[in-house]
Design a binder for these strands. Structure first.
Length: 471
RNA sequence: GGCCACGUGGCGGAGUGGUUACGCAACGGUCUGCAAAACCGUGUACUCCGGUUCAAUUCCGGACGUGGCCUCCA
């Protein structure tokens, strides 16, 4: 089955051919660790986790390297550290913030069923690589030193040669446009308004490192260089897939690509650039300033992680999602049904229809359609069908627990006393046996008021059996 | 202002130059003491206006709407 992926750079869906099938390499921009991740941050985590799982399925679990960085040097972190730990030296406070946030992030992404990446490099552990790339760029004439800053020149890049990609190609804009649209307050040390910072001097008290390119004062890296450095270190000069949110296309990925391609005189950094779309919450723009945002943590208090995961996968990754409680409700019901049908089934081979849908640029909506079909086959079929359905769900990171765990979790969250329910059901069974339907219906209403839904059935011997669940 | 993406039935959401998406909800049936669940079945769609075409929801142009990005700041 041929894997096809949409590439933001060429704006086309193409067959995916790894540079090295023995080691398929993917880099995804991870969090800047200063606060709880919000539900929008969960989207790339889930989307690229599914891609990671698919690649492992296709090329073998040991033949995929997935790198997701942790950015632990940033002004937002510094601000947060100063705010939250005013009594501590800044560097210590920063460490506290980044360690705490990283732990929160890991707890959250584990809960939404994402595999840990192969490597999770930290920016602060790759300062040497950043300096090395900066030195190469200065030596190559793509960057220059000015007032203890190092600046990258897109103009120099575009003037250089025909091997390099055009600056602006990823974000689909021309340098002329950017020059025309530049803001008036351009820093005085820049030669051109489009130049961007690779390295800047540290202010007193800020984290700092020895500077590259003969600068004598200590400094710290600009925004984009850390990803060029970490991707280089862990995946090489060129690799297969680079992913992230669509907001990163420009300037972050554009600049990363420029830095890397110029440093290594290459025409590509990643062979495929993939970007996930944005989230709205209840049809409103998600924005911190208006308070209209939900953290992963808050969502997890209300829903199992798998509900968030399935809800995210209902929409194709490049389309916008309207994140609503109604939709989550629906996802939750779907999972209840799937758990009931397949949770305890064994199977290690996902259905072809599922692999096929995922292979078409991660068409998870189509995948879910296939799952509905498999669910029907599983409900009316035997162990083979149930196994195939279960394996397909597990490939997506769903169905990670047993049916009993799934049900028990919901029951626990509702705070309903199972023993009390069983007592009431025993009374009702007795009432039904003596055809006192008034009483049995009264008990059913009582249970319904508690939030318990009951189902009457018969066992193999034809004896009436009543099961129940949280409505 | 520039660039880009999106606009599908009550809701969510794929896809396609001419034929059922799928799921939820709704409705009908089977089952049931009655329900629920399950199973079977049914209906309603492609923002608007032009153009291309034998034929457009699908291609092209425009309008309107929604969202994103427009650099050293998140």
């Amino acid at each position: 089955m041929e894997l096809r992926l949409y590439d933001t750079l060429t704006k086309e869906k193409r067959p995916f051919t790894p540079l090295d099938p023995e080691n398929v390499r993917m880099y995804v921009c991870g969090p800047t660790v200063y606060d709880f991740a919000h539900i929008g941050n969960a989207r790339p985590v889930i989307v690229f986790d599914v891609l990671f799982r698919l690649l492992r399925h296709v090329y073998g679990a040991g033949h995929v390297t997935y790198v997701r960085n942790i950015t632990d040097v940033d002004d937002k972190i510094n601000l947060r550290a100063a705010r939250d730990f005013p009594g501590l030296p800044l560097n210590e406070a920063i460490r506290k913030v980044t360690e705490l946030t990283e732990r929160q992030f890991h707890d959250d992404v584990d809960a939404i069923g994402s595999l840990r990446p192969t490597v999770e490099p930290r920016a602060t552990e790759h300062i040497a690589e950043m300096r090395a790339i900066i030195e190469k760029l200065v030596a190559g004439g793509f960057a220059y030193v000015a007032e203890d800053h190092v600046l990258f020149s897109p103009q120099a890049m575009n003037a250089a040669n025909k091997v390099l990609p055009r600056y602006g190609a990823l974000g689909n804009r021309s340098l002329d446009e950017m020059i025309a649209g530049a803001r008036v307050d351009v820093a005085p040390y820049k030669r051109d308004s489009t130049d961007f910072v690779l390295w800047k001097p540290a202010k007193p008290g800020e984290p700092s490192w020895p500077s590259p390119s003969g600068i004598t004062t200590p400094g710290r890296p600009g925004w984009h260089i850390e990803c060029s450095a970490m991707a280089w270190k862990h995946l090489g000069e060129r690799f297969d897939i680079h992913g992230g949110g669509i907001d990163l296309v420009f300037p972050h990925h554009e600049n990363e690509l420029a830095q890397t391609c110029c440093a290594f005189r290459a025409d590509r950094m990643a062979n495929v650039w993939m970007h996930n779309g944005f989230l709205q919450v209840e049809s409103e723009k998600m924005s911190k300033s208006t308070g209209n945002f939900i953290t992963i943590r808050e969502s997890l208090a209300e829903w199992p992680g798998e509900v968030l995961r399935l809800n995210m996968l209902k929409t194709h990754y490049r389309s916008p999602i309207d994140w609503t409680s109604k939709s989550l409700e629906e996802s939750s019901k779907t999972l209840d049904d799937w758990y009931a049908v397949a949770a305890d089934a064994r199977g290690d081979r996902p259905a072809d229809a599922v692999i096929e849908a995922l292979s078409d640029d991660l068409n998870t909506a189509q995948t879910i359609t296939a799952l509905h079909g498999l669910r029907h086959a599983a409900a009316s079929g035997g162990e083979r069908e149930r196994g195939e359905f279960a394996a397909s769900l597990r490939l997506l990171g769903l169905l990670s627990m047993s049916a009993a765990e799934w049900k028990g979790r919901k029951q626990q969250a509702s705070g309903i006393d199972a023993q009390q329910v069983d007592r009431l059901l025993a009374d009702r069974t007795a009432a039904r046996a003596r055809k006192d339907f008034k009483e049995s219906d009264r008990i059913r209403d009582e249970l319904a008021a508690m939030g318990v839904a009951i189902k009457d059935g018969k066992d193999a011997d034809g004896k009436p059996v009543t099961t129940w669940e949280i409505a």
